[in-house]
Design a protein around this nucleic acid. Structure first.
Lengths: 110, 110
DNA sequence: TCAATATTTCTTGAATTGTTGAGATATGCA
DNA sequence: TGCATATCTCAACAATTCAAGAAATATTGA
């Protein structure tokens, strides 16, 4: 992951509505959820929900798919995992100390 | 972790200078690094470095400690891990599917 | 084709945030 | 005490971003 991509993702998540949306979609897993439902859970009017979902999609954190008259959004778990990996890359210079500093989310390959 | 805390952390990381600073401090591990050195690595003038480090500290992502005339900053790895845990809490509703959607950074207790 | 549902686009105004540069504070040493 | 180093604080300006509501687009079924 590149810095610019990480910044896009982090900026996208720096908003209460979008953070709630992403967390809701995380719990929804592979099934995803339609825009209307997501907006409801996040407490956003349809217009706002559309705007924020577009921002999440633009950041690459979610992927839209039209199904009939609904648009289903799903978390891109690779992107989310990649973002986390980016944050803790080369943790402790590769030689972790006593504390479990690299513990919570270490994934070298990301 | 609460939403407001997560938002503070994510907002703090939504800036190129601060993101570089945090990543630099992650590689520095427990030793941390002095403000001047951090600013240099992030390409920020002392004034800017101070401002951004204060923002990171305010968000709870780093912790300052004065050592002689320098101020050493260290990543709060618990806070960073907690943030990641918050993002993927209740991943896939607790029943992960085929894909390793909950893989990269799962830590239930956070 | 017409009506209803689901979602997106557009416009305006308000609020937040980043940058810069100078000046202030704290520490260490002669 | 007086100087140099390391870091922080402050004020004005520019740029980005969010919210709200009305209107437009796409899909479905009668």
């Amino acid at each position: 992951m590149e810095e610019s991509q990480a910044l896009k993702s982090l900026s996208a998540l720096s908003d209460a509505t979008r953070l709630r949306m992403l967390r809701f979609l995380v719990t929804a897993g592979e099934d995803g959820a339609p825009a209307g439902s997501i907006g409801e859970h996040a407490g956003a009017a349809p217009s706002r929900a559309s705007f924020h979902l577009a921002a999440l999609a633009q950041a690459g954190l979610v992927v839209p798919e039209r199904v009939s008259r609904q648009i289903i959004y799903r978390v891109d778990f690779d992107a989310l995992g990649g973002l986390m990996g980016y944050l803790i890359e080369d943790c402790c210079g590769g030689h972790p100390t006593v504390r479990a500093c690299c513990g919570p989310a270490k994934r070298t390959g990301a």
